[in-house]
Design a protein around this nucleic acid. Sequence first.
DNA 1: GATAAACAGGATAATCATTATCCTGTTTAT
DNA 2: ATAAACAGGATAATGATTATCCTGTTTATC
Lengths: 153, 153
Amino acid sequence: MQIKNGFEQSVYAICLLSMLPAKSVLPGEAISNQIGASPTYFQKILRKLSDSDLIASVPGKKGGFKLKKSPSEIRIYDIFLAIEGQQALYYSNNVLGEMVPKKDKEACVLSDLMERAETSWITVLKSETISSLFTELHKEKELQDWVNQNLVQ
Amino acid sequence: MQIKNGFEQSVYAICLLSMLPAKSVLPGEAISNQIGASPTYFQKILRKLSDSDLIASVPGKKGGFKLKKSPSEIRIYDIFLAIEGQQALYYSNNVLGEMVPKKDKEACVLSDLMERAETSWITVLKSETISSLFTELHKEKELQDWVNQNLVQ
DNA sequence: GATAAACAGGATAATCATTATCCTGTTTAT
DNA sequence: ATAAACAGGATAATGATTATCCTGTTTATC
């Protein structure tokens, strides 16, 4: 069991996009290279983020990706949700339901606990945003230079 | 991303074992059938629980499994740990480390958050035990009958 | 317009983790 | 001695994740 690597990659991709000046974009291929992901695969990850309205895609020559929300409005949980989807950690296979066919009230006892745990986990992931988490990282000259060299428009 | 089905199966397997009278055991195959798992596979799951000292295995004819701890001492988290191992939810692939080679202090910012989230999740799973979670289920005549019919010794 | 560079999205392959099976060995009640 | 159970290694089947390819659409530039 493991949270997808695409999640961590997405967090840093969005972090890079948060360092973009207004009206400019970063091409998907440049992001993929910087993140160390295969470009064809990461394009699909970027589309998930785009489908979730965290980032915007600009087609055509001089196209690429940019943020759709401000870094302080993008919670780490939003990124997780975009990549992994809802009820991601635990999903009951209804083992008890097979053992005791009639009772389905009881069947939820474990699910209830797992849901409470997941809610608690989610609360922590909602407590930080891209801007709150990466204030220090934004000061990294190396990264900012890379962004400036690879942005378009 | 998904917590293994073996976890849910283990919880109910241990619940069954908690309904055993003293000095008796349940054969692995009977448990597997009741849980709806493949016997050869579930034997290995049972061994994991045994390795973690949650259950004890009795070899030989009239052998089987029984609890090694009392139901009130077996936390749901203990079962999770036995099946999934430590740091199970999130593991960093050090994406940032590849982007900014020198800084490895900063590299932990996301990991720190994910760890806090996991800790919070674990806290909930530590808050319930087999006995606290399944008080109602133990009253199920159907289940108790099945246990009595399948126990050995 | 034609071209080039970028995203959209479907189909499909490669890789890896989980689940399942098989087989040999050891233990113990009868 | 035999039968029924667990221990544990090797290996196959399955399913999810990651990766590639190809066709189509958009848009800046010539």
